[in-house]
Each structure stands twice: as structure tokens, then as C-alpha cells.
């Protein structure tokens, strides 16, 4: 973590830690807060986890333009780095809170980007989730829920998906993110005139999309390997243009890295239901 992140964290921690110390379980009259719906709350309980508290972290980041070539497809590294750093700051701050609560993990994590209303090139990166603690016996008596970096696990899965995952004998390790900011080259004038009046594939743009996706996917794989994961589930693929021009786009992949808890992954036979609503 950089020095700036430390400073920011210190300022934020001051108020947050007071709140967290109140949330810490065991104290008489302590309550939990959560970001879960009723069904999610009950299913997380059913999977053997107790919600501890709402945890959140955010970072307002300047993600301005950078100079790039007009007619060449290329990754804009500076922006790629800026976005991943901003997300990392938000995630780290949220994880710090989860650790302060003594959590085993965070479920229902949402990693969002919202345009900031102050200034044009700013965006806020927010991570919000619910810290949970495993009850004895959860996941077949699993003791250690932390991942190989001894951090509480994080997961973008809903309460429903989380419950299904645990029951099938898998445990989340961490939320993994792969992102790539790409500049799509503008076409040469000759090409534009050549295509006038007919429909044709714009190869340059197609290739740019493929490249951007490949880079993002290879990064999410690297992140999952670093956690010694067996695979990634609950993938969301998104494309953002943030505040940039139409030729600059971010390709973003978010998922949850998982590991097996046991060798067999038998899930119960689902019951057929006919929904009579609507």
C-alpha cells in the first residue's frame, strides 16, 4: 500500500473504528447491521454464517485522459493502473473494517463506480458488503476461512449464490477483478470513404474489443492464481466509458475465486416448482 493510502485510511479509520468497536460481537446489547435483503439474511444464516456489520470503503479518484495515438489500437496503461489502484484502495479500506470486526469474510460485495459530481474527470469507487463470521460447524466444520493472504474472504455473490456455493462444498477466496482501458483507433479517411454506402465489419474495432477482453481476462486469471483458486464463479462483464471520449473504453471483469472444501460436490436434487405468481 502506498503512503497516500495509509494517510487516507488513517483519517477514515478514526470514525469508522469507533462504530466497529460497537458492532463487535460479544458485547452486551450489540447489534449487527447488514446490507442484506431478508432472503439473503436468512440464507446466509442457513449456510452457517452470522452477519456482523455493514462494511464499506471508497476512493474518489482523478481518472483523466492521457495522450494516445489517434490511429493505433492500444491499451492506455496509465488509466488501467489508475482504475485498478482506485478499486484496490476502496477494497483495502473495506477489508480493514472487516478485519477490525474479526470477520471471516464479506458477502454480497458490490464494487461500483459512480461519476462524481464535483469536477468532470473524477469518479468514486465504492465497495460495500456485509462482514460475516462462520458459526462452528459451517461448511462441514471448516476452521480457517481466510485466504492464503490471511485476509477475510470477499465475494460478490448474493446471499442466495453464497448459500448454494457453500452447500455444494466450495468456499469463496476473494473477489477478483480484471480490467483494461483501451483506445480504439479511428479509421483512416480512405477506409471511411471505402465503406460508404455499404455494411461491412470494422475490423479494427473488432480487433480492439478482442484485445481489450483478452487483457482483462488474463488479469483476472492472474489474480485468481495468486489466491490459489480452482476457478472463478459469478462473473460479471461490464464495459464502461466513464467520462472519456467514445473511443476510449474500459473492459471490466469481476468474479469470485473459489476453492473446493471437500472432494465430492454432490448437490441435492432440486424439487420442481411451478410458480403461480404473475
Amino acid at each position: 500500500m502506498t503512503q497516500a493510502a495509509d494517510l487516507g485510511a488513517a483519517a477514515i479509520a478514526e470514525g469508522a473504528l469507533r462504530r466497529l468497536s460497537e458492532l463487535k460481537s460479544g458485547k452486551s446489547g450489540s447489534v449487527f447491521t447488514s446490507d442484506l435483503s431478508v432472503s439473503e439474511f436468512l440464507l446466509v444464516l442457513g449456510a452457517g454464517f452470522r452477519p456482523l456489520g455493514l462494511v464499506l470503503g471508497s476512493s474518489v479518484y482523478h481518472v483523466g485522459q492521457q495522450t494516445r495515438s489517434w490511429s493505433v489500437n492500444q491499451e492506455i496503461d496509465v488509466l488501467s493502473h489508475a482504475l485498478s489502484h482506485a478499486r484496490e484502495l476502496a477494497m483495502t479500506r473495506m477489508q480493514t473494517q472487516a478485519k477490525a470486526l474479526g470477520a471471516d469474510g464479506v458477502v454480497g460485495l458490490r464494487l461500483d463506480t459512480r461519476a462524481n459530481d464535483f469536477g468532470s474527470d473524477n469518479a468514486e469507487f465504492v465497495a460495500i458488503g456485509t462482514a460475516v463470521k462462520a458459526e462452528p460447524g459451517a461448511g462441514g466444520g471448516q476452521r480457517n476461512w481466510r485466504n492464503n493472504k490471511s485476509q477475510p474472504f470477499t465475494s460478490n455473490l448474493s446471499g442466495q449464490d453464497f448459500c448454494a456455493l457453500i452447500r455444494a462444498g466450495y468456499a469463496p477466496l476473494g473477489m477478483v477483478v480484471g480490467s483494461c482501458v483501451y483506445h480504439i483507433a479511428r479509421q483512416g479517411l480512405g477506409k471511411v470513404i471505402g465503406n460508404l454506402g455499404r455494411n461491412a465489419e470494422i475490423e479494427q474495432v473488432t480487433r480492439a474489443m478482442y484485445d481489450a477482453r483478452d487483457l482483462a481476462m488474463s488479469r483476472i486469471h492472474t489474480a485468481a492464481r495468486a489466491l490459489a483458486a480452482e476457478g472463478i464463479v459469478g462473473m460479471q462483464l461490464r464495459q464502461h466509458s466513464h467520462t472519456w471520449d467514445s473511443h476510449t473504453t474500459e473492459f471490466l471483469a469481476i468474479g469470485t475465486a473459489v476453492r473446493p472444501l471437500r472432494d465430492d460436490h454432490v448437490i441435492e436434487r432440486p424439487a420442481m416448482v411451478l410458480n403461480l405468481e404473475h
Binding site: 487516507g8 483519517a11 462504530r19 483523466g64 489508475a82 479500506r93 469536477g119
Partner: peptide, 27 residues
């Protein structure tokens, strides 16, 4: 946050404002 800025960085003042507001709402 000035537009003339040429590098990308966190705007710690804004981060603090939003974090404080959210943390306090949670409290």
C-alpha cells in the same frame, strides 16, 4: 481535481467527505 492536472491520483478530500458521510450514516 483541477483539469490541468496531468496525472491520475486519489482526491483524498473528497474521499474523506464521502466516507465520513457513509460511515456516519451506518453509525
Amino acid at each position: 481535481s483541477s483539469a490541468a492536472m496531468t496525472w491520475n491520483t486519489e482526491i483524498s478530500g473528497h474521499t474523506e467527505l464521502m466516507n465520513r458521510a457513509r460511515q456516519d450514516a451506518a453509525e
